[in-house]
């Protein structure tokens, strides 16, 4: 075999390489399609099943006992809203201020790195464990299930997400505009509130919405905190109905009527999540100044 023949392109080799290239391309396209199938199947099935089961009563009535038809999940929708509001009121401010610490005070410090790491780890703790924690922290001491326990548990789940996105968004604020504020004699706290946070606001709001969307669909942490109820919510110290819980209970029941309600509930839950995310995006994108970013 001469050197010359080794250098000449080998036809079989080229064909083999080109074939394997096409094969891999085909596999990756097929794989992607295979992933999109269940997604589309779930969404289509959800809209189909859910929309056909939705009616006015669903939004205005509490659940009916087994055997009676009709009834709705109005109390669950209200309950979920209350619990999520409570969670956001606690989780978002704490999360944002924690992110401010990491970005503005903790950069380069061991404590900052440690907190950042623990936040990531807390983010990965399964929601069922957070449910037990909420139970052990609050329900055990109150001696009964409560919406308060549910709200606090979900708030705890929001904090790490909000903290980390706030930190990341604050890091993108140019140092130059912080200097501009310092140069005007603005105290640090005022600079952070009016310049850093305001400049990073669109990203931070998106982060908060993602955290909200994540806990809005959570069921496991509510099992041993909110517990569920078939009545209208009265106060925070009582068990309260919540949409994901009710969907779970209905889905596992043997009754067709309840299955119907579970589908309708799922459609409402997903719509609520999407709409609230979309709404906040829309509101924050309005009222901007020309040429601002």
């Amino acid at each position: 075999m001469s050197t010359n023949s080794q250098l000449r392109p080998n036809r079989a080799n080229v064909l083999r390489r080109s074939a394997s290239n096409h094969l891999v391309t085909a596999i990756s396209v097929l794989g992607t399609l295979l992933v999109l199938v269940p997604l589309i199947a779930i969404l289509v099935y959800l809209v189909y099943k859910g929309a056909s089961s939705l009616n006015v009563a669903f939004f205005t009535h509490t659940p009916k006992p087994v055997g009676e038809s009709g009834g709705g999940m109005a109390n669950s929708i209200v309950g979920s809203s209350i619990i999520l509001l409570l969670a956001s009121l606690i989780g978002i401010p704490v999360g944002i201020l924690g992110g401010v610490y990491l970005a503005e005070y903790g950069a380069g410090k061991t404590l900052g790195a440690g907190i950042r790491f623990v936040a990531d780890v807390l983010n990965g703790v399964p929601s069922i464990v957070m449910g037990i924690a909420g139970y052990a922290l609050i329900v055990v001491h109150q001696r009964h299930f409560s919406a308060l326990a549910a709200g606090v548990t979900l708030a705890i789940m929001m904090v790490p997400t909000v903290t980390r996105t706030t930190e990341e968004m604050l890091m993108t604020v140019p140092h130059a505009i912080r200097e501009a504020a310092y140069g005007l004699g603005v105290p640090r706290w005022r600079m952070i509130l009016s310049i850093s946070l305001r400049t990073a606001a669109p990203g931070i709001i998106t982060g908060c919405m993602l955290a909200f969307a994540r806990v809005a669909g959570e069921t496991a942490p509510l099992l041993f905190t909110a517990f569920g109820s078939s009545f209208w919510p009265h106060n925070l110290n009582e068990p309260m109905a919540a949409l994901p819980l009710q969907i779970f209970v209905y889905a596992m029941s043997p009754y067709d009527e309840w299955h119907r309600l579970a589908w309708a509930g799922s459609l409402v839950l997903i719509t609520l999540i999407m709409v609230s995310v979309g709404l906040v995006r829309y509101v924050t994108s309005r009222g901007r100044l020309k040429g601002g970013h």
């Binding site: 140019p174 130059a176 505009i177 200097e179 501009a180 504020a181 140069g183 005007l184 004699g185 603005v186 005022r190 600079m191 009016s194 310049i195 305001r198 400049t199 606001a201 100044l289 601002g292 970013h293």
Partner: peptide
């Protein structure tokens, strides 16, 4: 003692008016 920096650094989220007024408003 006021300062003007090497690169122009107006506050991007503020209007022209608010940029000029910022030293007073933020204080």
């Amino acid at each position: 003692v006021g300062m003007v920096f090497q690169r122009p650094n107006p506050f991007p989220t503020m209007s022209i008016y608010d940029n000029v007024a910022s030293g007073l408003k933020l204080n």
